[in-house]
Design a protein around this nucleic acid. Structure first.
Length: 194
DNA sequence: ATGCAGATCGTCT
DNA sequence: GACGATCTGCATC
């Protein structure tokens, strides 16, 4: 049994955590079964100094969990139909987080395929909405503490050999930070969102 | 391979 | 009332 990441893994600098999450293993346990995927693509959202972040304009009901402990699930609905899954990072009071954008599926592929309506491995978790669907992550898990939960957590994996940094996806509207290289990918992975 | 329209609703103005 | 940290299917090249 691999060991679970502890709070201190998520509590440091958010850009470091976004890089360090590559190669770690996201685990989701449901009554239907367990699914696992290696994290291959992340994005950092840096709170009140990042005009692409939900927390740019301060606290709101939606972003409540971002102001608490690191290592918790920040999940929201986008376009009325997809969920996006972030892990809160940094110190309490600093509303920073890391968005998980893609996984390399490693366990529970048939269950993922059933949830996604496709069995092509590359299509299962290669996007923030896709991975939420494949892993059955929705807003009922909002605020879940990944350092204590039995149903959603991250296990220790091996860092990738080559990491690339690029601009984040879909944040052209953010005049200030759209050019920042705050998206991180396993450069050798075929399971990226693009 | 690239491009575009449509789906659909919580959150914020 | 407007707009997304998206995905899919269909059209065209």
């Amino acid at each position: 049994m691999a060991d679970r990441l502890r709070r201190d893994f998520f509590a440091g600098e958010t850009l470091d955590t976004a890089r360090a999450l590559l190669g770690q293993v996201l685990v989701r346990v449901t009554q239907e079964g367990t699914t696992r995927g290696v994290i291959v693509e992340t994005e950092a959202y840096l709170g009140e100094r990042d005009d692409a972040a939900h927390t740019y304009k301060g606290r709101s009901e939606r972003t409540r969990v971002a102001y608490g402990d690191s290592g918790c699930a920040y999940i929201y609905l986008i376009y009325g139909m997809h969920c996006c899954f972030n892990i809160t990072t940094g110190q309490p009071g600093a509303p920073e987080m890391v968005l998980l954008r893609a996984l390399a599926p490693v366990e529970g592929l048939p269950l993922m395929a059933a949830r996604r309506g496709t069995d092509k491995p590359r299509a299962l978790c290669s996007g923030p909405g896709k991975l939420c669907r494949a892993m059955a992550i929705d807003r009922s898990l909002y605020g879940e503490d990944l350092c204590a939960s039995e149903r959603l957590f991250v296990e220790r994996g091996a860092p990738p050999a080559h990491i690339a940094a690029t601009p984040r996806i879909g944040v052209e509207y953010a005049e200030l930070c759209r050019g920042e290289l705050w998206r991180f990918v396993d450069a050798d992975s075929p399971y990226l969102s693009r």
